[in-house]
Design a protein around this nucleic acid. Sequence first.
DNA 1: ACCCGTCATGTTGACGGTAACATGGCGGAG
DNA 2: CTCCGCCATGTTACCGTCAACATGACGGGT
Lengths: 323, 323
Amino acid sequence: MHDVAARAGVSHQTVSRVLNDFAGIRPETRERVLAAIRELGYRRNMAARALATGRSEVIGVIMPEVPHFGPTSTLYAIEHAAKKAGFKPLITTASWDPESMGQALDFLLGRSVDALVVMAQHPDVLAAVEATTDVPVLSVLTGSPRGTRAVAVDQIAGTRLALDHLYSLGHRRFQHITGIAGLTEAQLRRDTFLAFLDEHGLEHLPILEGDWSADAGYRAGLAVDEGVTALFCANDPMAMGAIHALEERGLRVPADVSVVGFDDVPEAAYAHPGLTTVHQDFTEVGLRAVAMLMDAISGREPAEVSPVEPWLVERQSTGPVRA
Amino acid sequence: MHDVAARAGVSHQTVSRVLNDFAGIRPETRERVLAAIRELGYRRNMAARALATGRSEVIGVIMPEVPHFGPTSTLYAIEHAAKKAGFKPLITTASWDPESMGQALDFLLGRSVDALVVMAQHPDVLAAVEATTDVPVLSVLTGSPRGTRAVAVDQIAGTRLALDHLYSLGHRRFQHITGIAGLTEAQLRRDTFLAFLDEHGLEHLPILEGDWSADAGYRAGLAVDEGVTALFCANDPMAMGAIHALEERGLRVPADVSVVGFDDVPEAAYAHPGLTTVHQDFTEVGLRAVAMLMDAISGREPAEVSPVEPWLVERQSTGPVRA
DNA sequence: ACCCGTCATGTTGACGGTAACATGGCGGAG
DNA sequence: CTCCGCCATGTTACCGTCAACATGACGGGT
């Protein structure tokens, strides 16, 4: 910056002012400075800037350690939305145990990130994070805002869309393949499933424990009970795995068993049969998340949070229960 | 840090030495400093550290703008490998036009990243990037090392695995659905496909242009020529879309048409029929990429590059050509 | 007893910006 | 004509850390 100033015949402070779009710079001076910057290929050092201002234009993102569709899509959505605001994500992964989370936090906060996005797959983490720092913290993918700053797709509504759809097709024997036990979204889908059964006085068959993977879905599909006609899977890959297993067992989808997934991954439309699923709009999640963070960073009170509404996509994997 | 020093009754420099694991600190002093750090919840400011040292322990990653399986998997692999070395990825997306790439570079280099990973989907970008900076630059997902620092799965070998497999099953009428035109990997798969046809004296049917998406695969599947028995798709989602389309047209897979994908996404095993595909080991790509960067950052001459070898996963979507 | 090297630690000055305050020139009002 | 105030720009200090050099205590060789 010193060199630029010398070349333009001004002080380094004037260069700084030009760079920061300060008012009250003579156009001619600004031109000279800009020319010098161009000629020298100067790029301002954000470390110094961050040191002086305490802001970094970086958003820390704590992701789960496994690249599933939801977190990944959300990350991309956040990246795109943040980019427009001049921010970039600094990514780190962490599981939800305190040590891993602590390391992630140390790293990100040490870099003076301006805000934090936590893909809070576990209910406890958010409070822990908020206690550690005073930068704005936003939780994403929790399934329910719960008072704190959060953006999420409404998991309860999504689950009910799936189950109501199956119920209205006449199904009465339901089974559920869960996501990873303990993760917020998996828990919400499971709880809602159980509540739904009770509300309609339906029989509780064993819960099939999954882990989001197509492999787990396949194994669970092999274990689906006789007589089940409606299978609600906590995500699409597990649904695909389960359908594969059911067909290996000679059960046809949807003639014998109707299957619903969750997420609406791009391949769902071309699964065989086309997968009925609950669409989650992660792009919208990313947009709202960044909007809230920008508000928080600039000290504005963030607008009211409302969960992102999912919708049901009906395809060929569900049909009326056999007469 | 000043406060820590005061509390421990030492100078700030001693604190710095403890933090940086300097030799020649009396154990008792070190203990006192560490205690003070703990009590004050002190965290060292990386902006200042970066300013003073010129290093940031951050690796800049330039990703393509669309979250496809390959780049995403590689990102996760890099994140995990880099974490072990104490580095984290700073992500930005860019298309391959010079302006977008320039902005991404300005951002990352301004943050004094210690190294750069470019998911160089286009052959020109790497040279452009390298000309801009003197931090180590590594290109990933190019398909071919081409002399510069690069880590990639061998696309030519992978494509040949797929085509040899089909050929050995007796297929002689091939068609290909491409990835996004111009991207390195798509181009390499396409070029290799065309070369393969020529080597075996096979007829050139129209190339079906895709864009990696299952949707494009579906549309291309509708356009597959009559009499084609072997369809090579540039990735798995397109293969799934294409199979869906073929079956809608009354063509059975693999009885009428054998289909091979590329990537081996987790769902491929549970597609219907199970998708024969070329497995790419992105974890290995990430590991090698980080290993090379760590070498380059610490000034060691990086070890010899060798492309990561893909392998063929045979499932049910391919079979012998009908008699 | 003296000198000198070594070890543990302290002191000072960058690193590259920004913020707050200081300065000088210029135009308009009295 | 003089004074004041504002506008454009310059000066100085500081952000938190590391690197280089400075210091002082201690101990061993002569």
